[in-house]
Computed example of a mutant assay.
Amino acid sequence: MNDEALALTPDLLLRERQLVVNGVRLHLVEAGPEDGPLVLLLHGFPEFWRAWERQLGPLARAGFRVVAPDLRGYNLSEKPPGVDAYRVGALQEDVAALIRALGHARARVVGHDWGGIVAWALALRQPEVVERLVILNAPHPAAFRRVARKPAQWRRSWYIFFFQLPWLPERLLPSFGRWALRGTNPRAYTEEERRRYQEAWARPGAATAMINYYRAMLRPRGRRGPEAPTGAGTPPPIRVPTLVLWGERDVALLPELAGGLERWVPGVQVVRFPGASHWVMRDEPVRVNNLLLKFLSDQAGPDFVPSSDP
Score class of each variant (00 low, 15 high):
Leu76Arg: 15
Arg187Tyr: 08
Arg223Cys: 02
Ile238Ser: 08
Val270Trp: 08
Ala97Leu: 04
Leu12Thr: 11
Ser157Lys: 02
Pro285Arg: 12
Phe304Arg: 06
Ser77Trp: 04
Pro169Val: 01
Asn290Leu: 09
Ser77Leu: 05
Glu4Ala: 04
Ala31Asp: 06
Val240Thr: 12
Pro166Ile: 14
Leu59Pro: 03
Ala90Ser: 15
Glu193Asn: 03
Pro255Asp: 14
Pro226Arg: 12
Pro235Cys: 06
Arg249Met: 14
Ser77Gly: 13
Gly82Ala: 03
Gly111Asn: 04
Arg156Val: 00
Phe273Thr: 06
Gly260Asp: 05
Pro58Asn: 00
Ala300Cys: 03
Glu192Gln: 01
Gly267His: 15
Ala60Glu: 00
Asp113Lys: 03
Gly82Asp: 07
Gln18Ser: 14
Pro174Lys: 03
Gly73Ala: 08
Val265His: 15
Arg145Ser: 06
Trp167Tyr: 13
Gly89Tyr: 15
Asn2Leu: 11
Gln269Ala: 14
Tyr74Ser: 10
Met281Ser: 10
Pro186Asp: 13
Glu227Ala: 13
Tyr197Met: 04
Asp3Gln: 01
Ala180Lys: 12
Leu293Phe: 06
Ala207Met: 00
Tyr197Ser: 03
Met210Phe: 00
Asp84Lys: 15
Arg65Pro: 00
Pro186Ala: 01
Gly63Ser: 04
Asp303Ile: 03
Arg224Lys: 13
Val39Asn: 05
Arg108Ala: 01
Val20Phe: 03
Gly301Glu: 08
Gly247Ala: 09
Ala300Met: 11
Arg132Thr: 15
Leu38Ala: 07
Gly222Gln: 09
Arg145Leu: 02
Asp303Phe: 07
Tyr159Asp: 12
His278Lys: 10
Trp154His: 09
Met217Ile: 09
Arg263Trp: 11
Glu131Phe: 12
Gln55Lys: 07
Leu98His: 12
Asn185Arg: 00
Pro81Gly: 12
Leu293Arg: 11
Leu26Ser: 13
Ala216Trp: 07
Ala207Gly: 04
Leu172Phe: 05
Ala85Met: 14
Gly32Lys: 10
Leu122Gln: 03
Phe273Leu: 01
Ala232Ser: 15
Asn290Lys: 10
Trp49Lys: 02
Tyr86Thr: 10
Gly103Cys: 02
Asp250Tyr: 08
Gln153Phe: 10
Ala202Trp: 05
Val134Ser: 09
Gln299Cys: 01
Val95Tyr: 11
Gly116Phe: 13
Gln153Trp: 02
Ala216Val: 14
Ala31Thr: 11
Phe162Asn: 13
Arg87Pro: 05
Phe304Thr: 05
Pro241Glu: 12
Val130Lys: 02
Glu191Pro: 00
Ala276Cys: 13
Tyr74Leu: 09
Arg195Ala: 03
Trp167Ala: 09
Leu254Gly: 11
Met210Glu: 00
Leu291Asn: 06
Thr234Val: 04
Leu293Trp: 00
Pro306Cys: 11
Leu14Arg: 02
Asp35Leu: 13
Asn2Gly: 09
Ala60Arg: 01
Phe163Trp: 10
Glu248Leu: 15
Gly247Met: 14
Ala209Leu: 05
Val21Ile: 08
Arg17Met: 07
Glu93Tyr: 14
Ala207Thr: 03
Lys150Pro: 06
Val286His: 15
Leu172Met: 07
Pro302Arg: 06
Leu6Ala: 07
Thr208Trp: 00
Val288Phe: 09
Gly36Phe: 09
Gly36Lys: 10
Val265Asp: 14
Ala90Leu: 13
Asn185Ser: 12
Phe161His: 00
His278Met: 02
Leu168Met: 09
Leu291Ser: 11
Asp84Val: 14
Glu199Trp: 05
